[in-house]
Simulated scan of single mutants.
Amino acid sequence: MSNALAQKLKDKLPKSEPKAPKGPEAKQVRLKLVYVDFMSALKMSFLLGLAQFIVVVVGTLLLYLVFVQTGIFETANSVAGEVLGSNSFDINSIASIGKTVGAAAAVGVVNLIVITVMGAICAVLYNAAAKITGGLSVGFTNQQ
């Protein structure tokens, strides 16, 4: 009985035909990168530097808040007081939230400038090297 039922179910399934290829096969193309636009490299490196700036400032702020919530600063104050022999040491006066985020912003701005300038320098150096060597060979394929 189950064989007959299985045969009836198989008969109701649509017949699968061998699939024909859907269009042309993937075509491979080899190209040479002989020029990097200076302004494109400058814009891209600026955006990467800006992303780095945001990550540094937000990361520093979050770490500072975690340190405050977990009581690390109070522990550091007590350890420093024991080592120095006086309880007048206060890490919060040195590392307040404003000073900490301000220092992180200053470091982020310096990194932003350095990353932007380095991106521009890399574009100029690549263009000079591509004139000498003919560029970088890159292979592409067209897949659908």
Rank of each mutant, 00 (worst) to 15 (best):
A6K: 15
L50V: 07
L31I: 13
G134K: 04
E25T: 13
V58C: 09
I94C: 07
S88I: 12
A105Y: 03
I113Q: 05
Q28R: 13
N127T: 01
K10C: 10
K32I: 07
S45I: 00
A103G: 14
K27R: 13
K32A: 09
L42Q: 00
L42K: 00
A4N: 12
G71L: 03
K19A: 13
F89Y: 08
T100P: 01
G119N: 00
Y35L: 04
V29H: 13
N92D: 09
I115S: 03
Q143F: 11
G49K: 00
F46K: 01
L47F: 05
A51V: 11
D11E: 15
I94V: 15
V109N: 07
I113Y: 05
L62A: 12
F46M: 03
K131A: 08
Q7P: 06
V56E: 04
T141H: 10
T141P: 06
V34P: 01
F89M: 07
K27M: 10
V57Y: 05
V57F: 06
K22W: 09
G139C: 07
Q144K: 14
S86L: 09
G134F: 04
N77P: 02
G119I: 00
L63N: 12
T141F: 11
I72H: 10
I91A: 09
A20F: 11
N3W: 12
I132G: 02
G108M: 03
I54W: 06
K15E: 11
E17F: 14
A120H: 01
M1A: 13
V101Y: 02
L61M: 11
Y35G: 02
V29G: 07
I121F: 03
G135S: 04
Q69A: 15
L50Q: 04
F73A: 01
A120T: 01
I54R: 05
Q28H: 11
P21Y: 08
M118C: 08
K99S: 15
K12E: 15
A51Q: 07
K27D: 07
L5Q: 15
L112F: 06
A6G: 10
N87G: 14
L112C: 05
A95W: 04
L9Y: 10
A128V: 02
A104D: 04
R30T: 13
A103W: 11
D90A: 08
S40W: 00
L33R: 08
A123K: 01
G135E: 02
A76H: 06
I113H: 05
G81N: 07
A4H: 10
L63V: 14
